[in-house]
Nucleic acid binder design. Structure first.
Length: 266
DNA sequence: ATTAGCGGGGCACTTACTTCA
DNA sequence: AGTGAAGTAAGTGCCCCGCTA
């Protein structure tokens, strides 16, 4: 990408009633049909604008800055964002002064005539974002034929914008989840390291004990040696050869761990 | 029944732009 | 006022799946 001045790259949308046609003008993608549509005007609008709202908006830059201005207001039962979009056409004829286009119509209707590479960043209004978030809570993916069109209509956005928002939202969710998982795994790793250190230390102590005294099991009562601490089953000599595994320290050490499966050896 | 082409959606990666400290 | 980081809308390429001829 970059700032190539005469790039044909871009996604072109045709608003055809309730359906939209996404055509990528990209010959390198075999799965997409090339489309020679001239005078493509990328989306650069926000929402409805009304005169009485202009003073209440979240104006960040003056229109003359060449950027856009947007205002937000609630209208009716559903919050309808109001935007006043100011756009400077930077790559027009050189002699022409930068022009400001103030939108007084919806985003769907508005068409700004600047080049594809003059991608101006939009900010959705709080109301638009809130409604999209609400929709995302119910379904993280859109039913393309219904929900997308409906949301786009309600938000005064293009269906493509709604689609992109959901894609980015899913990506953000996934990223956050990945970070959470990463933190969890780090903690698990730390816990395992500590446990490993502790067991190593214990092993060293046992080895030292073994060298200085008779085996530990020889010092313990027989019942202790052959009784499983979890199920209290005592192994006897005759059942050793049967299907049930015996529980003797001499044959197979049994590490009792109440946090895992206490009866695993039984 | 199989296959190739096509359209559309999702995702990963990236860019470009805005906002804020 | 300038600047870098963070956030995010949008572009691009690829893959997958369903449909259909």
């Amino acid at each position: 990408m970059g700032n190539d001045s005469v790039s044909n790259k871009g996604t072109i949308f045709l608003e055809l009633g309730l359906s939209s046609c996404m055509v990528e003008n990209n010959s390198t993608n075999p799965t997409k049909k090339p489309c020679n549509i001239l005078n493509f005007d990328p989306a650069l609008t926000l929402a409805l604008s009304s005169d009485h709202d202009l003073d209440h908006g979240l104006t960040k830059k003056k229109p003359d800055d060449g950027l856009y201005r947007q205002d937000s207001v609630s209208v009716g039962s559903s919050l309808i964002s109001v935007a006043s979009v100011c756009v400077k056409r930077e790559r027009e004829v050189k002699s022409e002064e930068s022009k400001r286009v103030i939108s007084t119509t919806s985003q769907v209707e508005e068409e700004d005539d600047y080049s594809v590479n003059d991608r101006k960043k939009l900010r959705l209004t709080k109301a638009q974002s809130a409604l999209l978030e609400e929709a995302f809570k119910h379904h993280s993916t859109l039913n393309p034929q219904k929900q997308k069109q409906e949301l786009a209509r309600e938000l005064k956005l293009r269906p493509r914008q709604v689609e992109v928002w959901f894609q980015n939202r899913r990506a953000r969710t996934k990223l956050k989840q990945t970070e959470v998982d990463c933190e969890y795994l780090k903690k698990c790793c730390e816990a395992l390291k500590e446990e490993n250190t502790r067991l190593h230390k214990e092993l060293q102590e046992l080895k030292a004990l073994k060298l200085s005294s008779p085996p530990l099991y020889m010092q313990l009562p027989a019942a202790t040696l052959t009784r499983c601490p979890s199920c209290e089953r005592t192994a006897d000599a005759t059942s050793t050869a049967t299907t049930r595994p015996s529980f003797t320290m001499a044959q197979k050490p049994h590490f009792f761990n109440p946090f895992t499966n206490p009866s695993a050896a039984c």
